[in-house]
Design a binder for these strands. Structure first.
Lengths: 151, 151
DNA sequence: AGCTGCCGGTCGATAGCGTCCACGGCCCGT
DNA sequence: ACGGGCCGTGGACGCTATCGACCGGCAGCT
């Protein structure tokens, strides 16, 4: 991860569809050299993938909620994670320090669907309680942060 | 947004670097037709961009925290949003229903940096109180959800 | 010092891609 | 039946992806 690698990561984070030729021009190397560097960044797991950023409203997912999950004493964590990951509405899942073991970011189309999701969560074995907060608006999301020097 | 558009969105969400020719093969149209459809999806805001997914650990951002912010009565919301958006550590910012007006997802390199961020937040005019929860691990994040029928 | 391998780059070639344009079928209201 | 808009196809052209051959710098050994 030298300065050029960081530059490539930065460029691809801003626009994942840049051509290798364009990347090469930006960093001052030849296209094959850039091709090889990007390949290595992918192989080492620095670059995990390239994804289109889709407007959730445009695909009928206008409701965003953040749900804290308190597990009960009998919970099998791995099993609970498995159950949660079977719920497609849950876009992100963090295992947290604190009383609420999980924090989920869920996206659904309507409040009614959110209600159903919460009911389903509360019925899930290992879940003692949930606490739901609704996002009224998303000011920004997944904003990239310029990488720091890993010296 | 017909079935082919949804298919294109889905394909690009899975892999934003697919060539138009490859997209064309997958959906059964010619490359120029796909080019035009994707252009329209971008123009109408369905596709907002294409971003590389970078491993936060690999760029020195190993600590993820979720921070609830309670505003005080004198707060100017827009000004507060502006101040928050000047803090690069804050990757996402949701305006919430409930006592905590904002929920922030922040990423920093060390706990010490998180401490500094929290101090800075608590000093910010308009902020009455914050509540921070640290993510011990990310089970998954920004998982795509297959789009529903917008009938 | 000189030799040797490796790493990481350039260069050149070729197949395939991006993108522009002209053209054509279909659906619709007249 | 006709005309126009929409949405597609096919062809053409320059540019890109990607391979293999080559090359220079550096490390470590003799």
């Amino acid at each position: 991860m030298d300065a050029i690698d960081r530059q490539l990561v930065e460029l691809l984070r801003a626009n994942a569809r840049l051509s290798f030729a364009e990347l090469a021009r930006q960093v001052g190397l030849s296209a094959p050299a850039v091709h090889e560097r990007v390949g290595k960044l992918e192989a080492t797991g620095v670059l995990r993938g390239y994804h289109a950023d889709v407007d959730p409203d445009a695909v009928g997912l206008g409701v965003t909620a953040l749900i804290g999950v308190v597990q009960d004493s009998s919970a099998d964590i791995d099993e609970l994670i498995g159950t949660l990951s079977d719920m497609p509405e849950i876009e992100s899942c963090y295992f947290m320090a604190g009383e609420e073991s999980f924090l989920l970011k869920a996206r659904v189309g309507t409040i009614a669907e959110l209600e159903q999701l919460i009911v389903r969560l509360n019925r899930t074995p290992g879940v003692s309680r949930t606490r739901t907060a609704i996002a009224l608006s998303t000011k920004w999301e997944d904003r990239p942060q310029t990488p720091r020097d890993l010296s």
